[in-house]
Simulated scan of single mutants.
Amino acid sequence: MLKTEKTKPEVLEAHYGFSAPEDVLRVLHRDALLAKEKSIGEDVYEKPMAELDRLEEKQRETYRRMLEQLLLAEKCHRRTVYELDNEKKKHTEYMNKSDDFTNLLEQERER
């Protein structure tokens, strides 16, 4: 069996401020409230720093996704410009051939 030591009233009074048993519950309640205040004080920096770290990570991910979308948009834009240039060249070639064909027809009619 475990032996329990009797705590001297002087020790209880030094620690809790009271030595009488009826006041111990009240003192324990006070100590619990103080302990909560201390633990709240410890978390004052931990919670915001953790939140800041989470926010930084989220911002990095958002920035990365934004860059991916910008690169995709730039690629699509380049492809569109290339296709438009090709269409412009085709149109110019078609118009030149059309002019040549029209000139040939006119020459044939003049003969």
Score class of each variant (00 low, 15 high):
H77N: 12
K75L: 06
L33M: 13
E46K: 12
E93H: 03
L67E: 11
G41D: 09
E110H: 09
I40G: 09
L72G: 06
R26A: 06
T62H: 03
Y16P: 07
L34W: 04
L72S: 10
V27C: 09
Y63F: 14
H77V: 05
S19V: 00
L104Y: 12
L71S: 08
T62D: 00
M1K: 13
K75Y: 02
E42F: 13
M49L: 13
A32C: 13
S98T: 03
L105H: 07
P9C: 03
P9E: 05
V11D: 09
H29K: 10
G41R: 03
D43M: 15
E74C: 06
A50E: 11
Y45L: 15
E37R: 10
E22S: 03
T92N: 08
K88D: 08
L2T: 07
R64P: 01
M1S: 13
S19Q: 08
N96D: 08
R109E: 13
E68I: 10
E57L: 05
E68H: 09
T80I: 04
Y16F: 15
E42L: 15
Y16D: 03
H29V: 10
E74I: 13
F101G: 04
M95L: 14
M95Q: 15
L55Q: 02
E10K: 11
L72H: 08
E22H: 08
H91D: 05
R65Q: 15
T7A: 10
A32F: 15
Q69E: 12
D85F: 05
H91M: 08
V44C: 02
T62P: 01
T80N: 03
P48L: 01
A14Q: 07
A14E: 14
Y63L: 15
T4C: 04
E61K: 02
T102E: 15
E87Y: 11
L33G: 13
V27K: 15
E5G: 00
T4L: 11
L84M: 14
K97T: 08
Y82D: 13
K38R: 15
D31A: 14
K8C: 05
T92C: 05
L67F: 07
L34Y: 06
M95K: 12
R109C: 03
H77A: 15
Y82P: 00
P9W: 02
D85I: 01
Q59F: 09
E87T: 01
H91L: 14
P48Q: 00
E10L: 07
E74W: 06
H77D: 07
T92E: 11
F18C: 12
A20V: 03
L70F: 14
R65V: 02
T102N: 14
Y94P: 02
K3Q: 07
E46S: 12
K6L: 12
E13R: 10
L34M: 07
Q69G: 01
L70S: 06
K8Q: 09
L71Q: 12
N86F: 05
D23Y: 04
L105C: 09
V44N: 05
E10I: 08
N103V: 02
E5P: 00
R79C: 06
A73P: 00
A73N: 06
I40T: 11
K89Y: 06
D31G: 04
M95W: 02
K90L: 14
R54G: 07
E42N: 04
N96L: 15
E108M: 10
F18W: 04
E46V: 15
A35K: 09
L28H: 06
V81M: 08
E13C: 04
M49C: 05
M1R: 11
P48V: 01
F101V: 01
R26D: 13
I40A: 12
G41W: 05
R79F: 02
L2P: 08
T92D: 14
